Amino acid sequence: MEVRKEREAASLPPTTRLHLAAAFFLPPRLTPQRVRYDRRYRTLDKYRFISWFLSLPLLVYLLFVVSPFLQAFYYSMTDWSGFSSNYTFTGFENYERLWNDDKFWDAMGNSLVLLVLAPVITLSLGLFFAYMVNAGGRQRSNETVSGVFGSRFYKIVYFFPQVLSLAIIAVIFARIYSPRSGILNEGLGAVGLDSWRQEDWLGGDLALWCVLAVLCWSFVGFYVVLFSAAMSSIPREIYEASLLDGAGRTVTFFRITFPLTWETIRTGWIYMGIQALDAFALVNVMVPEHGMDVVPTYLFEKAFRDGQAGYATAIGVALFLVTLVFSVLMMLVGRRDRIEY
C-alpha cells in the first residue's frame, strides 16, 4: 500500500502538485476546480483546517513561552548586568563559575530536599485525608461506602489554605515562628516543653524543616480535593465486591483505591515537585536574610541585588534542567498500563 501511494505521488504532474500546495493556503471557494474534486484534496482539506485553527495559538505560544526560554539560554552565556543593554558574550564561564559556587550548591541541596520530601509528605497526607472523607467512615444502612462524619466540612477546612496567597501564609508563619512572641514558642512553654523552645527557628538548621512544614500544610488541601474527585469516580460496585470478600480498609486502599487513582497521583507528584522547587515566596518572605536559600531566592539575589543577571540566568537554566529531568523521570518511572473500569 505504501509503495502504491509513493508511485501515485511520483506520478503527479508538476502543475497538480503546485495546485495542491497552493490549495493549502487558499480558502475552499478559491480552490481551483480541478483540485477541489481530487481525492487527495480531502486529506489536504482536513489537515489545512487543523493547521490554520492551531496556527495562531501556536504562534502566541512560540512568541511568549518558547522564545523567552531560548533568550535565557543565550543570556546565560553573557556578562549582562540586567541594568543596561551592554553585555559581552562569555561562553560557558557562568556555568564554570556555577560549578564551583558553594552557595549555589547549598541552595540546590535545600531545593532537592524539598523536592524529595515535600511531595512524599503532602501527597501521603492528601491521600489519607481524601480516603477518610470519601470511604473511611462507618458503613451506613443506605450507603455501602461513605466518608467520616462531617466529611463535607472537612473538605472546606482542608482547602482553606488555597484561598490564601503564599505571601500571606509566609507572613503568618513568620509570626508563628517568631522567637519572642510566636505562638510556637509560647505553646511549647505552656505545655511544659521549654527545652524545645528555640531562639531562632528560621535562622539555623531548623529553617529548612520549618519551610517544609509550611509548604506541605499550604498544599495538602488542594490534593485532598483532587484525590477526592478521583476517588469519587471509582464505581461503588468495586468497593461492594471487596467488602463481600472481607477486605478491610487497609486492603481496600492499597488494592483498589491506590491503583485506580495512580494517574492522578503521578500528575500531583509532578505538580507538587515543581511547587517545591519554586519555594521562592515562602523563603523570601518568611525566612530572614541569610537564614537559608533555595535556588529561586539565590537567583533573585544575584539578579537584583548583585546586578549579575547573566549569572542569574545560568542559575535559572540549571533550575529548568532539574525540573525537566524530574518531570521526565516521574513520567517514565510512574508509567503503567491504564486500568479501565
Rank of each mutant, 00 (worst) to 15 (best):
P235I: 13
T250S: 13
E289K: 12
E263L: 12
M292Y: 09
I256L: 04
L243I: 10
Y223C: 05
L244F: 03
V225N: 01
M292V: 07
I238H: 13
I256V: 15
E240A: 14
S232W: 07
A241L: 13
I234Q: 06
L226N: 07
N284Y: 15
Y223F: 14
A230W: 02
G268A: 15
V295E: 06
A247T: 02
V225P: 01
Q275K: 10
T252C: 00
L282C: 02
V224H: 03
P288T: 04
V224T: 04
V295F: 10
I274D: 08
L244D: 03
A247S: 11
F222S: 10
T261F: 01
D278P: 00
L277M: 15
L226S: 07
P288Y: 01
T250N: 07
D293H: 13
G248Y: 00
P288K: 09
M231H: 04
V285P: 02
V251P: 00
T252V: 04
L282I: 12
L244A: 11
E237A: 13
R255V: 02
R255S: 05
A281E: 13
F280D: 07
F280H: 06
S232K: 13
G273K: 10
D293K: 09
T267H: 10
N284L: 07
V294I: 06
L282A: 05
Y223V: 06
Q275T: 11
T264E: 06
E240N: 08
V251S: 14
P259D: 08
P259C: 03
P235N: 09
V224D: 00
I234A: 02
S228T: 15
